[in-house]
């Protein structure tokens, strides 16, 4: 009995592992296809502009709200901590580093994963379920070039300025908190920010934007493309896309920081 039970477990594990590797292989080819169709961007420039609007201007409010609130929160907490050590004037330096290197891009990435990624997953999943993706293929249109490549290029283009906006608004809200809550002169705050920031601080932060754009777009789109099982299947694939891309963002965030900080 126990032998057959462990045998069944081993069989299930083998099958799951095989399915996982097959899916990874499929994802790999899907991603390659999304990149090699970038030369067709001129043909799909309208789709690109639509996606740039969705990922960019339409996402601005959520990026602003999250970066302003995290900047303010960081300024309150770090300011209180620094006060204990009599180092409140270092608030600008510490918040700037946290926001520009880590929190600005990461929070923007997580917000876009939830907003842009979920939209991609749900929209493409619904198209898959209603056979619209099959229709594209059947009538001679490459669905990856038409649907995924414009999303990928739009994210690659707009995520960098969104990171800059997230960084600036986070820092500005931190400066306001420093001035009005901790009573630190704005000149002291900004003097602790800019002269001390070096190139690698910006490289760490801004290199994350294209990495996050690739992760969010490809993971969410792929999950939409493989959706099965009706509307419930669309829901499942959308959730999976957000969960997986958010997890990958956290991992990528760590490794990009580590790589740049160790090598610059």
């Amino acid at each position: 009995m126990s032998t057959s039970f462990s045998g069944t477990l081993a069989d299930n594990a083998n099958r799951s592992l095989k399915e996982f590797f097959l899916m990874m292989q499929e994802f790999f080819f899907f991603s390659i296809r999304a990149f090699i169709t970038i030369p067709k961007l001129r043909r799909y420039w309208r789709d690109f502009l639509d996606q740039a609007k969705i990922a960019g201007t339409d996402s601005l409010p959520i990026v602003l709200v999250s970066s302003i609130s995290i900047g303010a929160l960081l300024a309150v907490e770090v300011g209180n901590l620094l006060e204990d050590f009599g180092a409140k004037t270092m608030l600008g330096r510490s918040t700037a580093l946290s926001i520009i290197r880590e929190l600005g891009p990461l929070l923007m990435g997580l917000m876009l994963s939830a907003r842009y990624g979920s939209r991609n997953g749900a929209e493409l999943g619904a198209m898959k379920i209603s056979e619209q993706i099959d229709a594209l293929r059947a009538f001679g249109t490459d669905p990856i070039a038409k649907l995924v490549m414009p999303r990928l290029t739009a994210a690659l283009v707009v995520f960098v300025p969104l990171t800059a906006i997230a960084d600036f608004s986070g820092l500005y809200s931190a400066a306001l908190i420093a001035e009005h809550y901790h009573k630190i002169d704005p000149g002291i705050f900004w003097n602790a920010v800019f002269p001390r920031l070096v190139l690698k601080d910006f490289v760490v932060g801004f290199l994350k934007a294209p990495v996050f754009a690739v992760i969010i777009t490809l993971v969410s789109s792929f999950n939409g493309f493989i959706a099965t099982g009706g509307t419930a299947g669309v829901g499942r694939s959308t959730i999976k896309g957000i969960v997986v891309s958010s997890g990958l963002l956290l991992i990528a965030n760590f490794y990009v920081s580590k790589l740049v900080l160790e090598n610059m």
């Binding site: 209603s130 056979e131 619209q132 099959d134 229709a135 059947a138 009538f139």
Partner: peptide, 11 residues
């Protein structure tokens, strides 16, 4: 060939 899908697959 042309195809007419069961759910029509119109955009």
């Amino acid at each position: 060939m042309g195809i007419v899908f069961q759910g029509n697959a119109l955009f």
